[in-house]
Nucleic acid binder design. Structure first.
Lengths: 220, 220
DNA sequence: ACAAGTCTGTTGTTTTTGCAACGGAAAGGA
DNA sequence: TCCTTTCCGTTGCAAAAACAACAGACTTGT
């Protein structure tokens, strides 16, 4: 646990809380760590969560797969970010997605009940923790709004431009890397891979963008 | 304010709090009411919110409109539901949508700072309020997830079926009403109105559904 | 009751997407 | 290093969606 303390400290949930406090709180929150291998399922569609997770190492995907195996990547959760807080907060709402390790991961699990039901005054930092959780949930909704903007665009090109220009904005530069490979990007935007490749090539021809592998440039 | 107390009491935010307490809290939260006419803008793209809203009467739409006037309905907020809590929680994040009255409305505004920064022990129910707010935010994220499922379907028919079958599920009956007219439904699902009408007719022919105006039946 | 405006279904045309299949490049494992 | 697997761009074709335009039904306001 100690070795990941810097990750924990920088997470949105423990922001503004001192290291010593964090160690005390982790006990109080019944924190424990689990490890998974690449392609392992952390949780499956239909499971109920009573704990939220914080990714200590590696990256996971929240994915939804339908009967015909058509897969959509709902979100990508890299090291330092949290997941499952929504379902854990909502009580017994079963997961409507699966959670998969894209590489070997370590996850810190926290009992959400113990976060919201502030314990006996022992932990003064519970107040701060709750406020952080509130922020995290609001941020989550904002993130979903953002993604909604990409996929509610009408055409493949518009979806790509919405996503890419947003990435450029976040990177603060017209040149940036994307964290997905082509198949994953297509799944994330809810479009078809080859159609997307086709469109990307056209956009390059049209001088809108340039790219090599996962490096993209927005022109002008 | 008194006349809407029953609406307030049943809202997700004040669930589990006694009427007498509510009245006291409303003062503490600097609650105030504003009225709007049909088609009025409550807030515009780019505004910053420091307050969240609770719809006391009427219905509002959260809409996003692009340069070319292509409109998407992000959400429909009927009487009793809240809005703006995400942006109000996130501090100075500017609105990336507009909020419009679809009919005459009355809205109760609450200062979000006063919700999260629990005041001097005067209001014991702040704890409950915060927990409710947490639930509301989680529910909001869940709602977005749900909607994401509709619009990330690949075809118009699939989007319609995802939406309609979900509505039937919520109504607990294969027969139900939808709250949108055709243009609004198309905007909500991010598809084109006439293409949608075409597809609805086909689906009726194929014996999948039946409908008259806003009444729908799912067959079998 | 009438006129103006809105809502809805329909049609034909153009554009875009999905799909299946292929080959070369790149990556990973033995 | 060689072999296998994955990744990526490309193509042709069939299916679906977007678009524009229109007409009848229904609303609304005067």
């Amino acid at each position: 646990m100690q070795e990941y303390l810097s990750v924990i400290r920088r997470s949105i949930l423990f922001r503004g809380i001192q290291e010593e406090e964090i160690l005390a709180m982790l006990k109080c929150l019944q924190a424990h760590v689990r490890s998974y291998e690449k392609k392992d399922f952390l949780h499956r569609n239909g499971d109920c969560l009573s704990e939220m997770g914080l990714v200590l190492a590696g990256t996971i995907h929240l994915v939804k797969e339908d009967y015909w195996g058509k897969r959509t990547i709902l979100a990508r959760i890299p090291q330092g970010q949290i997941f499952g807080e929504v379902f854990a907060c909502m009580g017994q709402q079963p997961l409507n997605m699966s959670i998969i390790a894209v590489e070997p991961v370590k996850v810190l699990y926290l009992d959400i009940q113990r976060v919201t039901h502030s314990c006996t005054s022992a932990c003064d930092f519970h107040v701060r923790l709750i406020r952080n959780l509130l922020q995290a949930l609001a941020g989550h909704a904002l993130f979903l709004n953002q993604k909604m903007e990409y996929i509610s665009q009408r055409t493949t090109r518009e979806k790509l431009m919405a996503y890419l220009s947003d990435q450029a904005l976040r990177a603060g530069s017209p040149e940036f890397q994307i964290p997905f490979n082509r198949q994953e990007l297509a799944d994330y935007l809810g479009i078809e891979r080859s159609a997307m490749s086709k469109e990307l090539s056209k956009m390059k021809q049209d001088g809108l963008i340039d790219f090599q592998k996962n490096n993209f440039w927005l022109r002008q």
